[in-house]
Computed example of a mutant assay.
Amino acid sequence: MALKRIQKEKTQYLQNQIQGVTVKFDEQNPFQLYFTIEGPRDTPYYGGQFNYKLNFPPDYPFKPMKITSLQKVDHYSNYSCILERCNCCSPQNLLLRQQDWSPQLTFYSQIKSIVQCFFTEQFTHLEDVDTNQSRLYKNNRQQFNFNIKSTIAEEKAKQQIIQFIIFERCIKQFMSLNSGSIFIDLFF
């Protein structure tokens, strides 16, 4: 039953995708998918890419899926966050709250709920949240926004370094296989 439901949801998702979200289905494991949320415009998250892994349990949809954030994401919808142990989406397994789960919910609805966490204008009930980040958000929003943008810039820099290292290794391998003149002919 779980596999049939997952396939149905996958088909529905492909017909009605969420803007700013890329979903990659794991063809080797139909009980797993990955998704990336692009930081929305007009938010401090703009320019960032936030990666998640979603695992369906064997008794889905009667049990909630498990979502794992693959990097830390500071956000302030903790008060209504769909994820237990969120801690601002630190990289750990994030369990959907059992009391909030219903078999009628889909992975589409859960991804959409996570996307909403990135819209700071929708934050309310901040008095119910007491974390270092929520205090910073309440007391110094400019610093909060700066911290988010700095984290995004650091992540982009890491990705560029990784890409450069991979490129450098490919060039070195190419150079060892081919003569210098062929290398020069290819790039000039």
Rank of each mutant, 00 (worst) to 15 (best):
L96S: 00
R97C: 07
Q98R: 08
Q98G: 06
Q99E: 15
W101N: 01
W101P: 01
W101D: 05
P103G: 07
T106N: 01
T106M: 02
T106D: 01
Y108E: 12
S109N: 10
S109H: 15
I111K: 02
I111C: 02
I111L: 00
S113R: 03
V115F: 03
C117Q: 01
C117V: 03
C117I: 03
F118I: 06
F118K: 00
F119G: 00
T120D: 14
T120N: 13
Q122F: 15
F123I: 05
H125T: 05
E127R: 05
D128T: 06
D128Q: 15
D128P: 08
V129L: 03
V129T: 11
D130R: 07
D130S: 10
S134R: 03
Y137N: 00
K138G: 01
N140Y: 04
R141Y: 07
F146C: 14
F146G: 07
N147F: 00
K149D: 06
K149Q: 13
A153F: 02
A153T: 03
A153I: 04
E154T: 05
E155P: 03
K156D: 14
K156V: 05
Q160E: 14
Q160S: 12
Q160D: 11
I161M: 05
I162Q: 13
F164A: 11
I165M: 08
I165A: 08
I166Q: 09
I166C: 13
E168R: 15
R169M: 07
R169T: 09
R169N: 08
I171Y: 05
I171T: 12
I171D: 14
F174A: 06
N178L: 09
G180H: 13
G180V: 13
F183E: 00
L186W: 10
F188K: 10
F188C: 15
